[in-house]
Write a protein that binds this DNA or RNA. Structure first.
Lengths: 193, 193
DNA sequence: CGAAGATACGGACCCAGGGTCCGTTTACTC
DNA sequence: GAGTAAACGGACCCTGGGTCCGTATCTTCG
């Protein structure tokens, strides 16, 4: 390992910041009203500590997102079916999308914060590439499936945080949304059913 | 009409602002580096004039977007096939999506500016509702097509400005992108072909 | 255990950029 | 051509991301 272990207080503060940010994003109305100063205060820490530890706002949000996403990532990479790698493609595709959808529902404001972070498009985040690669590869396992690359992008676009948020705001329930997504995904896979 | 006609200089300035903004967005690298002050200067106008005429940044971008979109809107509402209302649903759906895609390609930065306008999600703009309603209705014309509402959202998500931008940046050509979108759309309509 | 060096801290500070205020100018009306 | 309403413009304000630097804290090693 090339990294030396960080100082104890630094590690503690890092956790405090992530926890505070999580709390604030979870309980706010719109993510952009959570300010960096707010997070610092809530974490009982100076502003500079945020920037020292996470570079900038985007970095903090991504770090937070990443920690929340980790369990799912793990489940996808080496968990059991229907998310894990041993799942047949026809079942894994809808399972992956459903997992993304549920994640966005469970972390609505955080996801909105991440994807709506102004300049930095969602497509420049590593985790997007990961999702896309994963889905892409699964689609390609379907023999004769053409355009898997674009299809993966398009399917992920269907579960973007702001769209999900919009639909929820319009009164669509979690289960209804999941059913609609499943039906839509089914259409894409249709001819292979 | 309840509106009185505006003063001549006001009308002239309005046009100058729209023209300047269009020019700046078209020639910039990223839309957020076009500042309101820049637009004012380029239009030979004071900043307050921008805000007086368009309320805020979002308002200006929307107004500009709207004027550029108008021809297409017209073509969709009462033009000839394949965009116009007399087109059979099976052909109109891909035509509509292709039109959206081409528009975003032709007005890349403007579209990015509109959809990435931070707080105001793309889903709160009137023109989105219009596109969605239109597509929704066409999909519903396909007998037995379920989930037209969600499908319309999902299909439109596949041509969001930042995704299109991302794919173009990755080297995908206009024609390739159009072909992929057509194939993807075909999948959605698949069982009705 | 205590001092030296490295590391982290925090809040005052900076600055860009969106949005506003108000004294002045300009276009219509009679 | 005078009077009025509408529009103008740029100085100004303020929020919020990001930085600076003197101070406090951890760690290490004698």
């Amino acid at each position: 390992m090339s990294e030396r272990k960080p100082r104890a207080d630094a590690a503690r503060n890092r956790e405090a910041v992530l926890a505070a940010a999580d709390r604030l994003f979870a309980s706010c109305e719109r993510p952009e009203q959570v300010t960096m100063a707010d997070i610092a205060t809530a974490a009982g820490v100076g502003k500079a500590t945020l920037f020292r530890g996470f570079t900038d706002r985007t970095g903090l949000i991504r770090a937070l997102y990443e920690t929340r996403l980790e369990p799912i990532r793990h489940a996808v990479m080496d968990g059991p079916p229907p998310l894990g790698p041993d799942t047949p493609a026809m079942e894994r595709v809808p399972a992956l999308l459903d997992a993304v959808l549920c994640f966005k529902l469970d972390h609505r404001h955080l996801s909105l914060a991440l994807e709506g972070t102004g300049s930095d498009s969602p497509y420049s985040a590593e985790h997007y590439d990961w999702w896309h690669d994963t889905l892409h590869r699964v689609l390609e396992q379907l023999p004769g499936f053409k355009g898997a690359d674009f299809a993966a992008h398009a399917l992920l676009a269907a579960v973007r945080a702001d769209l999900v948020d919009h639909l929820v705001d319009r009164g669509m329930s979690r289960e209804h949304l999941r059913a609609e997504l499943a039906a839509y995904t089914g259409r894409i896979l249709g001819e292979f059913a």
